[in-house]
Write a protein that binds this DNA or RNA. Structure first.
Lengths: 242, 242
DNA sequence: GTCTTCATGTCGGAT
DNA sequence: ATCCGACGTGAAGAC
């Protein structure tokens, strides 16, 4: 068996799995285990999952992911920073992953491991993402008239007692303007959020100025639209560019 | 090479990867590819990621996950229901995954595949999860006095123009009571949500009854607490049991 | 550490 | 299909 192949084990014995995971953990490798297992979780919530074929991923940062054959989300997991140990118990290969704060434990028990791999992953690149709320904000700062002619941004992340306002500025009549940004179609929650900021600022500015609230998003749902009208808030349609 | 090993390829050629993925896709297998790749995504947002070692998972339901050596979250992904094709292009192995509605595309280009696997995953078990909001609701329905002596639940998921109320009931003075449940410590958003329900119900009941709003959660943040006071809403501390 | 909000959130249920 | 809210949400940034 060559050096390369040593990191891939097909139908390994329990002992071989154990030694592969122990050595891989020590060397900071990215590992996968595929086989028949059951899973228990106890922490903020608690769960059990009976025997079935799943893919378990162990990352060098302590992340554990248990994936079934379906879905984007892992059926069970443990976040980065966890510590795990592997042992043989009652004829099963058992991986116990522990986390503190909150105290959480994930236990995966294999009765059969179909294959196991361990590889060093070198990844220095950062993801470049476009079309986020930050991009939408930058578009507006670049061309404030997108909100309305005469709009002047004064600050971003302006602090209020209710939290930070996305963009704070003034309109051509010197009214205060609170702009809440959403990168996609919004529901009532975003309107409530904007409303909290507007109400709070009205109080903080001692009612000497009118405070307008403008929701900026690609679109709004019907409920959100009604709520905007009720609260005397405005809507401007803008979509972040990719 | 045995039948079992046929699903695991170490340092496969591009052609071997292509044929493994094509055959695995056709047969509904769960596949993993580990190697050096770059990734592009375009859809609701857009992203690029330069070359690095990553683990790519292809599920029979169309899910694609690209995992780096760090983090719970995939760095790029495609949800269930996507279709993918694999091809050779400019000396690279390229996987293109496409989704409609919204139109989204994920392209993974490998210049080197370190290993590739394809396995049939049989999983009939459902996850049993405890300690959810539904469990908290059941606790209260079982013992309504947990809210307060005399509380009587009348319905769950009661519809209002603002959405469904978690638990709707009456107190010992025949006031209407809206209960909003959260399984964990809550911030201002949950208070706003409860407030929307209470305001809407006050209007729908024609002001002939007082509507009390009670937030039930393990705890609340300071901001949320202030907002509760402002809105004349109440708080009851309860934690869902595992 | 806690708090707050964003996210290509994902997921499920109801309409 | 869209809407709406829960999620063991996770992740990032501010304090």
């Amino acid at each position: 068996m060559s050096d390369e192949q040593r990191h891939v084990a097909v139908l390994p014995t329990h002992d071989e799995v154990k030694s592969l995971v122990e050595s891989g953990t020590e060397r900071g490798l990215l590992m996968t285990l595929f086989g028949r297992c059951r899973v228990e979780y106890d922490g903020r919530a608690a769960s059990t999952l009976g025997f079935g074929d799943r893919l378990v991923i162990l990352k060098p940062d302590g992340t554990v992911l248990v994936h079934t054959d379906e879905g984007h989300q892992p059926v069970n997991w443990q976040p980065p920073g966890c510590t795990h140990e592997i042992k043989k118990q009652d004829g099963l290969v058992v991986i116990e992953s522990h986390r503190e704060n909150p105290d959480e434990e994930l236990i995966v028990r294999f009765d059969q491991v179909t294959h196991a791999t361990a590889f060093e992953a070198t990844d220095t690149e950062e993801l470049q993402l476009h079309g986020t709320e930050a991009d939408l904000r930058d578009q507006i700062l670049e061309e404030p008239d997108l909100i309305e002619p005469g709009f002047e941004p004064l600050s971003t992340e302006r602090e209020t007692a209710a939290g930070a306002v996305d963009i704070y500025g003034t309109d051509s009549d010197e009214n205060a303007v609170v702009v809440e940004l959403k990168r996609r179609r919004v529901g009532p929650d975003a309107v409530s959020q904007l409303n909290r900021y507007v109400e709070t600022l009205e109080r903080e500015l001692h009612a000497e100025t009118t405070v307008r609230g403008i929701l900026v998003a690609p679109s709004v749902t019907d409920r959100a639209s009604e709520l905007l009208a009720e609260r005397n808030l405005e809507f401007v349609s803008l979509t972040p560019t990719n």
